[in-house]
């Protein structure tokens, strides 16, 4: 009895230490974002005891075009997520359910292009913008994010479709439903959590992406990560403002984590554990 207690104690203390290590840097950002310049420069790190101020947030929200950048990020994030889920959902359904020539080829090549490094896309995307003159346009960015996200979304949704018993669809077909009706009326309601996971991953990648956004956006089309990086060169020492920007960028992914941790873990382990 005593042994299990001490083992549990050791288990919990190990977890607490690890949790602290995972959280501390994020906390440092959060705390710093609420500090005035003097506290940021303080010789001794201030974890908790400082007078919080909103001046950093006020600064970043009033100088520059913060609302514009935020809107851009939201537009690109949402548009590419909707596109990815829509197109990826159809494709995953076909791969999971329908038999057709080239199915294996399609499945394999989807998995191959999943890993195309963003750095490889950078120069061609830049070249495209130079040649076509389509600059300063969120559509290009949205399109690229959709392309980058599709393979993983297809892979993920494929797994979810596989889990749904075929009998449900067969019954619907017998009742005279068309493939589209089967897709929308029968499968979609059962795929809610699958789409939620894929949506979170897609949105997060679009929301966080930096390199392509840096290259393909201009003064008015900047997304938040690009705007945040701008604070480094402009103001090397204004850590409070940089951290305020960082905190705002991190909010949506952190919210997802709190509300859908289980699904996120399912998505992360899907790649490895199911193999």
């Amino acid at each position: 009895m005593n042994d299990t207690f001490s083992r549990q104690l050791y288990h919990y203390s190990a977890l607490v230490v690890l949790a602290f290590m995972a959280l501390a840097p994020i906390w440092v950002m959060l705390a710093t974002s609420f500090k005035n310049d003097i506290d940021v420069q303080s010789a001794e790190p201030l974890w908790l005891f400082f007078v919080p101020t909103l001046e950093n947030y006020e600064y970043i929200m009033t100088r520059g075009k913060f609302d514009r950048y935020l809107t851009n990020s939201i537009i690109v994030g949402c548009a590419s997520t909707v596109m990815t889920l829509l197109l990826g959902g159809f494709c995953a359904y076909a791969l999971a359910r329908l038999d057709f020539k080239g199915r294996t080829l399609m499945a394999n090549s989807t998995l191959m292009v999943r890993m195309v490094p963003p750095a490889v896309l950078a120069v061609p995307a830049f070249a495209f913008v130079m040649i076509s003159g389509v600059d300063n346009d969120l559509a290009v960015l949205t399109f690229l994010y959709t392309a980058l996200n599709l393979p993983f979304a297809i892979w993920l949704l494929f797994g979810f479709y596989k889990q749904i018993p075929v009998e449900l669809e067969e019954a619907a077909v017998v009742d005279g439903a068309s493939p589209l009706q089967v897709f929308f009326r029968v499968l979609l309601p059962l795929m809610k959590s699958g789409y939620a996971v894929a949506g979170i991953f897609t949105f997060r990648i679009a929301w966080n992406e930096f390199i392509l956004a840096l290259l393909l956006t201009g003064r008015t089309t900047r997304t938040l990560p690009v705007a945040a990086s701008g604070f480094i060169t402009d103001t090397g020492v204004e850590w409070g403002r940089i951290m305020a920007m960082g905190t705002l960028i991190v909010i949506p992914p952190l919210l997802f984590t709190f509300f859908a941790a289980r699904q996120i873990i399912a998505g992360m382990t899907a790649g490895a554990v199911k193999g």
Partner: peptide, 29 residues
């Protein structure tokens, strides 16, 4: 163990932070 899901939620937080923000945080530290 009881409460494991809470800890697991905390552990995936670093993974969810944007790479740019990770760079900023550690550049500061």
């Amino acid at each position: 163990i009881r409460g494991a899901s809470v800890f697991r939620t905390i552990f995936i937080l670093p993974l969810m932070v944007s790479p740019v923000v990770v760079g900023l945080i550690w550049r500061y530290l």
